[in-house]
Write a protein that binds this DNA or RNA. Structure first.
Lengths: 218, 218
DNA sequence: GCTGAAGTAGACCGATCTGTATACCTGCTT
DNA sequence: AAGCAGGTATACAGATCGGTCTACTTCAGC
């Protein structure tokens, strides 16, 4: 299972945004792009099962024939929606990662990226988690995308943690992962305001203490 | 049968399990109980919108007429499902809380309760978070139950934190909340094995350090 | 000038959705 | 003995679901 999914990259946690994910079977014509845009908004806001293809087509300003000519099925639209969201997030995150000089800064930058990404993109929590709530079959093609993003994020955190502390990196990376996931949920559910920012500060403190115990690296 | 059955009491985090939630409008006949049981399993496993009332009735061994005579609508079944799940969880948690002597132990016991509750009850993450993913309208009656449980959990954590550290209790309580929510998500998504147990240990360490800084209380 | 890709417009299909109706049966309680 | 709550069995209604189909249009490239 845990085959070396991806290098989290020494310097800048890079990684192909589409590793191991089936290549795009859809030719992205202008109409298809509008369909994907409308579907992304509707699926995220209202839930996947609650949105019909007729509504997607209407919101996209295309006919159902165009929709089916491009995507073939609703399931494929769901897959493209999740794959596209995953890709956009990784690109967005890469900017924050590249701007952070040290591994510790990079780890903290993930939270800053999520905090900023949440504005306009995550009013209802993590799209992957929400999609997972509606998918029961692990054989569903969307499953791999969801699990893939989470595995990649965990790899990113543990990889960065390994550069902060030689020993106990897995433990630290996992704790950062828990903090991050919890922040997304708390933000989406509006449990308290500024959840992601608080998680960012918590991560900062956690990393500072971890580095203090083992000050080999900065 | 609809009286405020349980009280979660303990050192902190008091609150009726049904505070501010509409009283049960449904008379729980044997048939209604079977409907609720079947609906709970199906809603959690497959998602709310993916499950039809015909399937619920069939799985419950009841006709659709009985189902509608008791609940009136599918929406009401959803509400009862969430209210019932919330109540069961609070009762389950109360046992762990009562058995823990100190506030610190109680806070850690929440994670232990979730870890044990997950066996058989939470293979797909938090039912409230998953339901939230499928509900778009904040005016939906289920919304209050979902938000109510999260607010209650936050109050529980911050209340216990206040007994550990006089100052910075809100910050500590919120961090515990983030850790806990993240653990539920990571457990449901199977990001890595033993997520809730690791969160329990993280919370333990966090509370020990917090108490060490301000050793007024145990 | 023709072809093919990308599109609109809209009818249509069978299945499934939530919800209702009619008729009958059973076991308690008064 | 009567009445009623709780139930079975089943048919039905109107809407919506995912998906297909025919016919026509527009436009770029060879």
């Amino acid at each position: 299972m845990t085959e070396g999914t991806d290098r989290v990259g020494g310097g800048a946690g890079k990684g192909d945004a589409r590793e191991a994910v089936a290549p795009r079977r859809v030719t992205m014509t202008p109409g298809a792009r509008r369909v994907l845009g409308a579907a992304a908004r509707l699926f995220y806001d209202r839930g996947i099962h609650a949105v019909g293809v007729d509504l997607i087509a209407a919101e996209a300003g295309v006919t159902k024939k165009t929709l089916y000519d491009r995507f073939g099925s609703k399931e494929q639209i769901v897959v493209e929606y999740l794959a596209d969201r995953d890709e956009r997030w990784r690109v967005f995150l890469a900017g924050y990662l590249d701007a952070a000089p040290t591994p510790r800064d990079k780890a903290v930058a993930v939270f800053a990226a999520s905090r900023d990404w949440a504005v306009g993109h995550m009013a209802k929590g993590c799209g992957m988690v929400n999609a997972h709530a509606e998918i029961s079959d692990p054989a569903h093609p969307a499953y791999a995308i969801i699990a893939g993003q989470k595995a990649w994020m965990l790899g990113l955190f543990t990889g960065l943690a390994a550069e902060v502390v030689p020993r106990g990196a897995e433990r630290l990376g996992r704790t950062l992962m828990l903090l991050h996931e919890g922040a997304l949920v708390a933000s989406g559910l509006r449990v308290f305001p500024g959840a992601i920012e608080q998680a960012r500060r918590d991560a900062e403190e956690l990393l500072r203490r971890a580095a203090a115990v083992d000050p080999a690296h900065g």
